[in-house]
Amino acid sequence: MTRIAIILTILLAIAFPISMLAGRVWIDPESTPNASIILAELRLPRGLLAMTIGAGLGAAGASMQGYLRNPLADPGLFGIAPGAALGAVASFWLGYQASVWALPIMALLGGAGAMALLALIAGRTGGIALFTLAGLMIASLAGALTSLAISLAPNAFAMSEIVTWLMGALTDRSWRDVWLAAPLTLAGITVLAFAGRDLDALTLGDAAARSMGVDTKRLLWLLIIGIGLTVGSGVAVAGIIGFVGLIVPHLVRPFTDRRPSSLLLPSALAGALLVLVADSVVRVLPLVTELRLGIALSLIGAPFFLWLLLRMRRGELIG
């Protein structure tokens, strides 16, 4: 374990118990009524879910940037998150009240469908340009279909439900969501870890990587499956949480030797920390209704993205 990974683990160990107590109602375990129930049934699953989703998004972002050799790449750009969102929106249509599993499972199916489409279009050649363009096409198609579903919503209540859900949040999540997302995210991060060395080789370009024995098709499949599992399961339980995959690898990169493989674990840990802290902050903010986590992270993420672009324009950003 590298030094940055150890530091991030310690920070998580500090932040997690604090986040358990933080909220509109700060919990004092001794005096707050029903403290143990609130902790066990609300805050604990919510905190674990925040870390799970953040870890998945962080690892997905790090590997996506490594694969595309572009520090501005974000896993949300490549169709899997919008595909999962489309699946979730479809479940509102089909009456998600029918089963508590309907929404997350439909979201996973949507993410898997986007993954399959991406693999079908880009998987045969393993080329990066085709992968990027196919991902953008899928993202825009899924976005259009999501808008269509919203515009055709059967009633105003359904429409408001869909729109609110799309904003991304961890409010009122339960253990069921943890059991759904955690194993899939863990599996996804494991798959991405297998891609680490190939991503390192890709640092020297496609031809050099192939000359070093990298099977570019296998690498593409590892990426699609790993990102599909991490991002798809995240969207399935929390809606769209943007920018984490973009921001986190940047924050971590200066503390590593900058090889994509050395970035994976620290990005997962930093993603977990960022979403955990952000979700605690939105709980504490004194607003009439809780600020949606997805909106909060986008409010931080968009200026950060602009700052990156400006640095890139000045030639300071070369990874």
């Binding site: 050799r69 370009g205 050099a208 000359s211 900058r258 994509p260 990874g319």
Partner: peptide, 12 residues
């Protein structure tokens, strides 16, 4: 094999 491009994507 040393390709012509000389690319090193990250500042390692």
């Amino acid at each position: 094999y040393l390709p012509q491009s000389g690319e090193v994507a990250w500042d390692i």
